[in-house]
Nucleic acid binder design. Structure first.
Length: 569
RNA sequence: AGCGGGGUAGGCCAGCCUGGUAGGCCGCGGGGCUCAUAACCCCGAGGUCCCCGGUUCAAAUCCGGGCCCCGCUACCA
């Protein structure tokens, strides 16, 4: 048994997350956390809403509401949606919590006192009408390369060139369109250069980092780490604690990642102890983050750098499990183009377990994956329902109707029966290896193979014939088949927790399901529970109707002025 | 531009690290079974493994070059 901190990237709650956000961080982390608990490890699974920063501030300003109100409302909604998706957070907090703010300020003072912070003056665009400093994305103008009129300060969407906002011609504030002025402002920088050796050693010596995270990070290290501004001139954020930094806030990225620590502290507050040290200060603790590939630098470079700079002896993260992107019908998810499905809408269409199964089944582990309705239906109907659900039903209803509804004795197993158990055990072990390696998609595929193997086994052994002549042989087959369901239930539990629990009850399981127990032979005589189909099919016509209703709901919600009223609960 | 990932049957994907008769699922054609949710199982058709060159007895796999797709590039969070 080991100690784990599982963290999923903190969702920015300006909007509700979409399916791609879900599989990239929160859902993947949940599956892994559930797996670890099933194995009997001590796990704290943490995340929270990322609340600060200019985009949210601007959005709130447009609506004429206080950013704190906006963020708090969205936080509640997102937290509720995660509950409905059965995300098993031990704590889901947010970055505007007292604990977090205090922790971040103290943390940065340590970094400051250790000499890793220096100041520099920058010239940045400022909109006098909105009374706000403009991040690169919030300044528009003519692209100096292609002449595109609506190029943004970070990149021209037309020609793809990366830009510095100073290069733009005829600049405008993206919020109100007025002309920004350039103001000189002082900022506090993290001296990443001085932390580079430590970070490089961390990345190079880390055996657990996944290839895409490692490559991206090494590429950055090769170029050399550049100092990064820790402060911003935003109003909506955590006040920078540095001497003379009145009016400045900490850049969201530098504080949100510290949430992994502050959330654990907060978790232990209600448990009345300094227990958080047992996790964050113990080098044996395995700390694992789940992020989309865009998030790699902050978790693999910045956070470890900050932890080192603090000099507080925090345990460095074991690995960051990053995914590629999920596309929706071949294109990137886009809120503005209404392209995709958001996690509130999804639950109007299918139960959480169905979505969880689909998303893990296509999890973008090696390359971008594509969500399409036709594959989604195929996975639900052919894989989850026919292969898995129907296999379960074949076994359990046979035992119900032909064997008195209790787990039969092992009978007299033939060579073929022994081979079957070896085969499914091997598949279960394969699933275990993949779960251990955080290859969740591969793990689920191996679990599905157990059901496929079971279906082949039943067809080959035909217990419905054996039961008429050789009852002992029939018992052996069904005993083995039942055993395979134990592995199936355990293997499925991290992905479809509700369904696995239901399966376990149908099997007559009383004590909690555990991973190790699946390797052990079943107890003959165990009475089955009530047997009902585990899953059901979803027809194309049904989906079409649901999508149409969703369109109507979207239309109604779009008329509402506040984003939290647009969420479909 | 730099960096990363990818290009394998009509569709989706595994195999590539550790060369050796090209695999799985869906779809299609045929058959079987009746325990099961019109489910399940078997057989079959279908491939220039992106292109060119090299190494090798042997290349989807290793090396070099090229083409195409996707993503990232640190002020989007």
């Amino acid at each position: 048994m080991a100690k784990y901190i599982v963290g999923s990237a903190w969702p920015y709650v300006q909007t509700v997350p979409h399916l791609g956000n879900m599989i990239g961080s929160v859902l993947s982390a949940d599956v892994y956390a559930r797996y670890l608990r099933l194995r009997g490890h001590e796990v704290i699974f943490v995340s929270g809403s990322d609340m600060h920063g200019t985009p949210l501030e601007v959005e709130a300003m447009k609506l004429g509401v206080d950013p704190a109100t906006y963020a708090a409302k969205m936080h509640e909604i997102v937290a509720e949606l995660f509950r409905r998706w059965n995300i098993s957070f031990d704590i889901y907090t947010h970055t505007h919590s007292e604990t977090h703010i205090k922790f971040v300020q103290e943390f940065f003072m340590k970094v400051y006192n250790n000499g890793y912070i220096f100041t520099r003056e920058d010239e940045v665009p400022y909109c006098p009408r909105d009374n706000i400093y403009l991040p690169d994305r919030f300044i528009e103008g003519k692209c100096p390369y292609c002449g595109y009129q609506r190029a943004r300060g970070d990149q021209c969407e037309s020609c793809g060139m990366l830009l510095d906002p100073k290069q733009l011609v005829d600049t405008r504030c993206a919020i109100c369109g007025s002309r920004p002025e350039w103001r000189v402002t002082k900022h506090w920088y993290l001296d990443l250069k001085r932390l580079e050796d430590g970070v490089r050693a961390y990345v190079e010596r880390n055996p657990y980092l996944q290839p895409n995270a490692r490559e991206m990070s090494l590429a950055m290290l090769k170029e050399g780490l550049k100092p990064r501004a820790v402060t911003r001139d935003n109003k909506w954020g955590i006040p920078a604690p540095f001497p003379g930094a009145g009016g400045k806030t900490i850049y969201v990225w530098f504080e949100a990642v510290l949430g992994y620590i502050s959330a654990v502290i907060e978790y232990f507050k209600s448990r009345g102890q300094e227990g958080w040290r047992r996790f964050w200060k113990d080098p044996e603790t395995r700390i694992i983050f789940f992020v989309g590939k865009d998030n790699v630098p902050f978790h693999v470079i910045i956070l470890p750098a900050l932890l080192m700079a603090s000099g507080e002896g925090y345990t460095l993260p074991a690995t960051t499990a990053s995914t590629e992107y999920l596309l929706y019908e071949g294109d990137k998810f886009s809120k503005s183009r209404r392209w995709g499905v958001w996690i509130d809408e999804a639950l109007q269409i299918m139960p959480a377990d169905y979505w969880r199964f689909i998303l893990v089944y296509i999890r973008p582990e090696n390359r971008d994956a594509n969500f399409t309705w036709s594959t989604a239906l195929e996975i639900v109907n052919k894989v989850m329902n026919d292969d898995v659900g129907n296999y379960v039903n074949r076994v359990l209803s046979f035992i119900k109707s032909k064997m008195g509804g209790t787990v039969p004795p092992p009978g007299k197993p033939s060579e073929e029966d022994g081979k079957f158990i070896n085969k499914v055990t091997e598949l279960f072990r394969k699933a275990e290896r993949h779960y251990d390696a955080i290859e969740l998609k591969e793990a689920l595929h191996a679990v599905v193979e157990i059901a496929r193997e079971g279906n082949r086994y039943l067809n080959a052994r035909a217990p419905w014939e054996l039961v008429r002549g050789d009852r002992e042989a029939a018992c052996a087959v069904m005993y083995n088949a039942y055993w395979s369901l134990k592995m199936l239930a355990a293997g499925l539990a991290p992905v479809v927790p509700e369904s696995a629990q239901r399966l376990w009850r149908m099997m007559g399981g009383t004590a909690g399901l555990s991973w190790e127990d699946a390797y052990r032979p079943p107890e003959p005589g165990t009475p089955l529970g009530e047997v009902r189909p585990l899953f059901r099919k979803v027809s194309e016509a049904e989906i079409r109707a649901l999508l149409q209703r969703l369109e109507e709901l979207r239309g109604q919600r779009a008329a509402k002025s506040h984003p939290w009223e647009q969420v479909i609960l």
